[in-house]
Nucleic acid binder design. Structure first.
Length: 546
RNA sequence: UGGGGUGUCGCCAAGUGGUAAGGCACAAGACUUUGACUCUUGCAUGCGUAGGUUCAAAUCCUGCCACCCCAGCCA
C-alpha cells in the first residue's frame, strides 16, 4: 500500500472527532510520541498511520517526538532504531523533536505555576506520598508541605534544579485536589530529581518533568491540535487539560484516546522480550519469533502488509485483539503477488520413476505466476527425484490426496505419476518410493488435463539440487493464560529443516520465495555459513491443516 | 465498594430512529502447472440483559450484568 492511499477518514469517524466530522476544523497537527525505551512493534504501526494520516488529510503535519523524559529507561540505541524502523515502514516525518527540547520552557512554566500558587515542593518520601494518596475508594490527604509560601517553593525548586538535594528527597507537585475521585488529580508529581546521565542531554538537568506535565506542554508548544493516545490515558485527560489551561499557552490540544491493537497470543511487551533474551530463548529484539518491526522484517514480512493489516484492523475504543489469521492474511496477500516460486524439499525422500527412459528433460517453470509478464526458467526432470516425505502416506488419513498407492498426483510442471511400491527399513520407515509416469500428461501440453488429479506436489532432481537450511518459526505465543500471576509463553518454536532447493538459482536477499506448499520464505541476513538459510514468514493458507 | 471506559456473527468492524455493510475464519462448488491464487454460493429474525418511549429501536430512556483501565518521584 502506498502511503498516499492511507485513508484516515474511517479512523476519524471511529474515534469520533466531532469537529472534524462536522467540518469545523480544517487543520490538524499531530505527533508520534514514542519513548525510546524499546523497539517499535506491530502495535505501533497503526498509531503511526493514524497520526501521520490524519495530519496529512487535514493539511497539517505530524512530527516524530521522542518522549525522552526518563533517562533510567532510555537509550540512544532505541532512538536510532525507532527512526530506522519508521523509515522502513515508509514514513518520513516532517520534523524529529525531543521532549528534552522543551525542558527550558517546561521549567519556566513550572515556575509560573509556583508563582501562582498552583504547584509546591513536597518533601514526602515516595512511600509517604503513596500512603497519603488514598485508595481507589478513599480520598487522599493533603501533604503537610502543601501550603508552603511561593518564595519558599521557588527557593526549594531552584535548589532541586541546582542539584542540592539527593534524588527522591523532594519533588514538585501540582496543587489540584487530594480528594478527587480521579487519582491522577490528587496533586500529581510534575517534577522529580534525577541524576542519571541522559542519552541526549547528558547531565545538564537535575530535574525531569513527568509525562503528565511535559506531554501536554510539548503538544501545546509544538502546535499539536489533536493528541492521540491509548485508552490507558483516559483518566489522565483532566490532568492534561489542567496543565494546558494553566500553562498560559494559547494553543489547547485535544487529547483523544483509542484502543491499542493486539494480536491474540502475540508477545509485544518489552518486559517479556527482554526476559526471553536474558534467558537465551530468543536471540534479541529482532528474533523472527517476536513481533517487533525488526523481527517481522527479518522474518520476511513486507511493510505494506503491516500497513494494510493496521488499516483493516480499524480504530475503535473496544478491546481489539485480532486473530493471527487476520494478520497473516495480509502478509500472504502481498507475498503471493511477488514471491518467486521455487521447488524445495524440506524432508527429502527418494522417488524413482521406473518407466522413465530418458536421461533428462527440460521443464519450464514460471518464476512469478501471479504476474502476467513472468519470467520463466528451465529445470531438469529425470528418473531419480527427491520429494517431501510428508507428501507420501503408507496409510493415508481421510481427505489426504497426495501420494499413496493407487492415487494419481502431478509433479509440479511435469507429469502425472502413480506409486507402484516402496521400500522400508526394519522400523517401517519408508526409504524409497517407486512410481510410473504417464507421458501424455506433461504440464502445458494439449492433453495435460486428460487425467484429473487432486494434488500437485513439488520435487527436485537429485542431480540438480543443493542443500539448504530452512527455519520454520511457529509463532511465539501465549502458551497458557496466566499462571501464578505471570504469563506462560511457548518459546520453543523454532524448527530447523535440512532440505534441498533447485541448484543454479541466483538467490537474493531482496527476493521472497515460495517453497511450494511450505509457505513464504526469505533469506536470513544473519547467514554466516555457506549454506543458504531461509526463514519462513507465514505458511500457505491451507498447508497448516493436513 | 470510588472514578473512567467498553459491550453488534468464532475474530475485527460499519451502523447515530426506518427494519443488521464489509473483511478474516469457516463450509460447499468451479477452475487449476501449488490442497495456493481466482471465481461462485452459504454463514446474526439478531445487536450484553430486562423493561420503557415510538407507527418503527442496535440506535432514545431507565435498571441490571460482564469485561478492561487507574492508587510510579514510568510512559
Amino acid at each position: 500500500m502506498n502511503l498516499n492511499e492511507i485513508k484516515p477518514e474511517n479512523f476519524i469517524e471511529n474515534i469520533v472527532l466531532e469537529d472534524l466530522k462536522n467540518g469545523k476544523v480544517n487543520y490538524v497537527q499531530t505527533r508520534q510520541p514514542p519513548e525510546p525505551s524499546g523497539y517499535l512493534h506491530i502495535g505501533h504501526v497503526r498509531n503511526i498511520m493514524l497520526n501521520y494520516g490524519i495530519a496529512k488529510k487535514f493539511n497539517g503535519v505530524c512530527n516524530l517526538r521522542f518522549d525522552d523524559t526518563n533517562p533510567t529507561k532510555e537509550k540512544q540505541e532505541f532512538v536510532d532504531a525507532i527512526q530506522e524502523d519508521v523509515h522502513w515502514l515508509g514514513f518520513d516525518f516532517k520534523n524529529v523533536y525531543y521532549a528534552t527540547d522543551y525542558f527550558q520552557q517546561n521549567y519556566e512554566i513550572a515556575i509560573k505555576l509556583i508563582k501562582e500558587g498552583k504547584a509546591y515542593v513536597c518533601d514526602l518520601s515516595p512511600e509517604e506520598l503513596s500512603q497519603t494518596r488514598g485508595t481507589l475508594t478513599q480520598p487522599g490527604t493533603n501533604s503537610p508541605y502543601r501550603n508552603r509560601t511561593v518564595e519558599e517553593n521557588l527557593t526549594l525548586f531552584e535548589k532541586m534544579k541546582n542539584g542540592e538535594f539527593p534524588a527522591g528527597k523532594c519533588c514538585l507537585r501540582a496543587k489540584i485536589d487530594m480528594s478527587s475521585p480521579n487519582i491522577n488529580m490528587r496533586d500529581p508529581v510534575i517534577y522529580r530529581i534525577q541524576y542519571n546521565t541522559h542519552q541526549r542531554i547528558g547531565n545538564t538537568w537535575n530535574i525531569y518533568p513527568s509525562y503528565d506535565f511535559s506531554h501536554p506542554l510539548d503538544d501545546a508548544l509544538e502546535g499539536v491540535t489533536h493528541s492521540i493516545c491509548g485508552l490507558e490515558f483516559e483518566d489522565h485527560r483532566p490532568l492534561y487539560n489542567w496543565v494546558v489551561e494553566n500553562s498560559g499557552i494559547a494553543n489547547h490540544p485535544q487529547q483523544i484516546e483509542y484502543s491499542n491493537l493486539m494480536i491474540k497470543g502475540v508477545i509485544i511487551g518489552k518486559r517479556h522480550i527482554k526476559r526471553f533474551v536474558a534467558e537465551g530463548k530468543i536471540s534479541g529484539f529482532d528474533d523472527p519469533r517476536v513481533y517487533t518491526l525488526r523481527g517481522l522484517r527479518r522474518r520476511g514480512v513486507l511493510p505494506q502488509s503491516l500497513l494494510e493489516f493496521s488499516k483493516a484492523a480499524s480504530v475503535s475504543k473496544t478491546t481489539t485483539v485480532c486473530e493471527m489469521d487476520f494478520f497473516e492474511h495480509f502478509v500472504r496477500e502481498d507475498l503471493n503477488k511477488i514471491s518467486k516460486r521455487v521447488m524445495a524439499v524440506l524432508t527429502p525422500i527418494k522417488l524413482i520413476i521406473e518407466n522413465y527412459e530418458k536421461d533428462e528433460e527440460d521443464i519450464i517453470l514460471e518464476d512469478y505466476p501471479q504476474n502476467e509478464n513472468t519470467t520463466t526458467r528451465i529445470y531438469k526432470f529425470g528418473k531419480e527425484l527427491y520429494i517431501d516425505s510428508d507428501d507420501f502416506r503408507k496409510t493415508p488419513e481421510p481427505k489426504f490426496h497426495r501420494l499413496l498407492i493407487g492415487n494419481k498426483v502431478r509433479l509440479k510442471g511435469a507429469y502425472v505419476i502413480e506409486v507402484t511400491h516402496f521400500d522400508e527399513d526394519e522400523n517401517g520407515n519408508v526409504t524409497c518410493i517407486y512410481a510410473n509416469y504417464d507421458p501424455n500428461t506433461k504440464s502445458g501440453t494439449a492433453n495435460a488435463n486428460n487425467v484429473k488429479v487432486k494434488s500437485t506436489i513439488h520435487w527436485l532432481n537429485v542431480k540438480h539440487s543443493q542443500p539448504i537450511e530452512a527455519r520454520l518459526f511457529e509463532n511465539l505465543t501465549l502458551e497458557s493464560e496466566i499462571q501464578n500471576g505471570d504469563y506462560v509463553f511457548n518459546p520453543n518454536s523454532l524448527i530447523i529443516k535440512h532440505g534441498y532447493i533447485e541448484s543454479g538459482l541466483n538467490l537474493s536477499f531482496d527476493e521472497r520465495y515460495q517453497f511450494l506448499r511450505n509457505g513464504y520464505y526469505c533469506l536470513d541476513k544473519d547467514t554466516t555459513n555457506d549454506l543458504p538459510v531461509f526463514n519462513r514468514t507465514v505458511t500457505l493458507k491451507d498447508s497448516k491443516k493436513k
